[in-house]
Design a protein around this nucleic acid. Structure first.
Lengths: 345, 345
DNA sequence: CTTTCATACTAAATCGATTTAGTAATTATA
DNA sequence: TATAATTACTAAATCGATTTAGTATGAAAG
């Protein structure tokens, strides 16, 4: 039951290994019809399957890319991964996915391991905390694409949402419909997580631009497990906002859970818009108005950029791509009634 | 910028490659403190990173497994994948995921490619149509685990839900609450997709056991895109069932979409129970009563079984594992009112 | 004082492909 | 007719590790 190698095929077909190799690589130029057939028959007979590891060692290319994500539970991750998968399968590439759990230590380790495994390139949803490691890859011209988040100072391709615009879209929609007291729900803004900053800051700026009040209490920026508490505290204070902007799917889930537990009526008592078009948005009651990221296009772009870098390692000009969000109007934010059913304060 | 190899390290440290290799594999037994330090320094100085491809060629193990799924959009897939990932990361394994799209041709190709890539084992959500290929792997004692679906006649490990029980759980719950006219929504039952058969047949048997009518019209078994139509036709006929059993998350989405579009009230006009505990089940209105698959345990088990096979290729006894579903009682099926709001004949 | 043993290494073979440089035979060109 | 070119191959080096069999040295044992 030992493995069949090229040498076995060569022996059976009565040719050299070199010729078999030529055959496998379809370099038929100077090969007789007769030889070709003999080799084909030998391969068939032995059930020979080439060993790609051996080939990779010589060729220094593995036709494999690595993807490091910081959170698989995120909807964006799943969908982008799907798109990357698809783009890779079209070109015969394979994908190895690793989960950094937003832990820079783990991320660093996975980068090392994947590079040791000789992946041809890396697409990273970065934790943002390994600037030195990222920088080294850029300097070595190792193919690298950031997605979802980017790292200031590291000159690499980055595929991002236009987060400011996404926040503005939400605020403008609320504003136009007469909502004034608007809050935001997000994990804590930290300087190395750019999109979070951009969404929260974009929200603040859009509020200012529309001349709407910026109320500190309406900025629920705390870790996911504490969002319920914060929301409850705000609710108990009696100064509930009229509308809430959830900056991603995970925070939206918290908001919905809170609303459910407190029998708050959407959109009459509280309007909601979130980034990430969750799959149940159109079957929820009310249907959810969301701001969709073009996840598929983003994943595809990331893969394309990586392939570009792999193809011509040298003269590659890193670029930052900002993808426009799409506003999907549904039912969780409507024309605001002047007289509310449950007036607070 | 050429790669640093073990030979470079050996030269700088003034030892042989063998010694460096021993060092890297922590076989310090007969190595002087002095040498160890020199090697460590040389590695540090050169920024040496071992090439795992070369190592794999010699060792005939890649510390990589392949997973072939038939549908990434399925919730089960995502969650099981997550569990497999985690189990692999614990043991230093990497995972390559490929999507067969339920196309046997694709599946066959991916099996070939992954084996050419020398993966140490394969976890497959099988299309069910490549029995010959699966069988060959079993005969060669190539580590293989089926998950979600199994293939009759192929003696390999299989991780499955107890589908009959899942169906029975739903029917019994409905029956005990006074529901009589119960329907099922599923893709078409085909002989090579075992769980689908088991769920539909299990449903039929449970109905019989409870002495409930088996109405052909209440078996909506058609491809996902046509479910809306079938549901509409049934609805138009005026003979709506009182309860519906959705056999997975994808069919549930169709049911919910239909319900939404037709302003049907859950659970008063139509009760619903589905297999797969969708992430929004607890925030939906009403909350959704579901039958959860222990996805995490299943993924973990699949990985463990594969590792077992990898560890001792020979004396491995293939087994079929049936995981028990968990009934999660929420609000989409309640005590049935004797007088219905909208009585249909 | 030889032999054995333990220690601290190394040379060379090996894994299974690809690739380069070359050979032998035949055909075309000067 | 001698030389060049083309065709159809092959031997051997190579990729970068691991591993086996072995060597050299000094200490312990007989």
């Amino acid at each position: 039951m030992k493995k069949v190698t090229m040498a076995d095929v060569a022996k059976l077909a009565n040719v050299s290994k070199s010729t078999v190799s030529q055959y496998l690589n379809k370099r038929y130029e100077y090969m007789s019809e007769e030889t070709r057939k003999r080799i084909a028959r030998a391969i068939e007979e032995l059930g020979y399957q080439p060993n790609i590891i051996a080939r990779s060692l010589k060729q220094k290319t593995t036709m494999t890319i690595g993807v490091i994500v910081f959170n698989i539970l995120h909807m964006l991750t799943t969908q982008v991964l799907h798109a990357i998968e698809e783009a890779c399968q079209e070109r015969g590439f394979h994908v190895i996915v690793s989960n950094s759990d937003d832990d820079p230590e783990k991320e660093r380790k996975y980068i090392e391991m994947l590079r040791a495994k000789q992946v041809d390139g890396l697409i990273i949803f970065p934790t943002g905390k390994n600037a030195d490691v990222y920088q080294k890859m850029v300097e070595e011209r190792f193919p690298l694409v950031f997605i979802d988040r980017m790292v200031p100072g590291v000159k690499a391709d980055a595929i991002l949402l236009d987060n400011q615009k996404a926040a503005a879209l939400a605020v403008e929609y609320f504003a136009e419909r007469g909502y004034k007291r608007i809050g935001v729900v997000a994990p804590p803004p930290v300087s190395h997580i750019i999109p979070r900053m951009e969404r929260i800051e974009g929200f603040r700026q859009a509020l200012a631009k529309k001349g709407l009040p910026i109320v500190d209490d309406y900025f629920i920026t705390t870790e996911i497990p504490y969002i319920q508490n914060e929301l409850a505290r705000l609710f108990a204070s009696g100064r509930l906002p009229e509308a809430l902007f959830a900056i991603n799917d995970l925070t939206l889930m918290e908001v919905l859970y809170f609303i459910k537990g407190n029998h708050i009526k959407i959109p009459d008592e509280l309007a909601i818009i979130s980034i990430d078009d969750v799959p149940f948005a159109h079957v929820y009651t009310p249907t959810l108005t969301t701001i969709a990221q073009p996840t598929f296009a983003m994943g595809k772009k990331a893969a394309e950029r990586l392939f570009l870098q792999i193809a011509k390692k040298s003269e590659h000009q890193p670029q930052i791509f900002r993808f426009s969000p799409t506003f999907i109007e549904r039912g969780s934010a409507k024309e605001k009634n002047v007289i509310r059913k449950r007036e607070v304060t």
